[in-house]
Structure formats: C-alpha cells, structure tokens
Amino acid sequence: MSEPRVERPGLYYPKLPTTWWLRNTNYFLFMLRELSSVFIMVFLVLFLVELYRLSQGPKAYGAYLETLRAPGWIVFHVVALAFALYHSVTWFKLSGVVQVVRVGERQVPPSLVTAASFALWAVVSIVLLWFMVRG
C-alpha cells in the first residue's frame, strides 16, 4: 500500500494522467499484453460452460455448439486467438529473461531459453491437436 507522499511547499508535483499508456508504443503494447489475460479468461469460462453442457447430454451440448456458431462468438474467438498468441509470444520472450538457466557456471543466453520454450510450445500444441481431432 502506498501512503500519500508528503508534499513540500514550493515544489511542483507532476501527476501522471490515467492515459499514460497512450504515450508511447511500448506502454501501449504492455497494456495489450496485460489485457490478453481478459480474453483468455473469457474463453476459458466459455469452455467451462461447454463442459457443463456436455454433462447435460447430447442435446444441450449440440445446442451450445450452435450458439458458438453465431458470428459474434466467432469474431470473439478470432480476436481472443490473436490475444492468446500475443500472450504466448510475450510470455516466452520475457520468461527467458526472468528464468536464469545455468549450465555449470555459465548462464544460458535468454534467447536460447526462449527458443526452447517456443519449441516446447509447438510440440505441445501439435500433440494436443492430434489428440483432439483424430478419429
């Protein structure tokens, strides 16, 4: 928690406007990165509803898939996919910097850690894709 700071007379205290994130590209991309979590959360809630409808029988499940066919939900999922991909890319890039991996005394370069994460992501995605769409 931040206590209000004691302001000394004579000094000018600048106030950061709430629109600070529109001031430069990096700030704006940061905001997109953080907001990607909202789209991911909404998708997972929709997916949870799908699982709930699944437990209610074929009719309810079919009706729910019909709902998801609505143009509005398709647009949402396309946008959410873009945000989810942005999350994955930024996450692997940043976690490569955060997670220091050492081999012996040497630090593995963050770019190599990131590359390994991308490779893992690709393998996991392909395995899941195969698991879900086969037969």
Binding site: F47, H77, L81, L85, H87, S88, L120, W121, V124, S125
Partner: peptide, 10 residues
Amino acid sequence: AALLVPVHLL
C-alpha cells in the same frame, strides 16, 4: 495459458 490455450482456442 501460453502453452495450452492457443491450440484450445483454435
């Protein structure tokens, strides 16, 4: 989310 969500979204 980074590893698993994109493919499920797709």
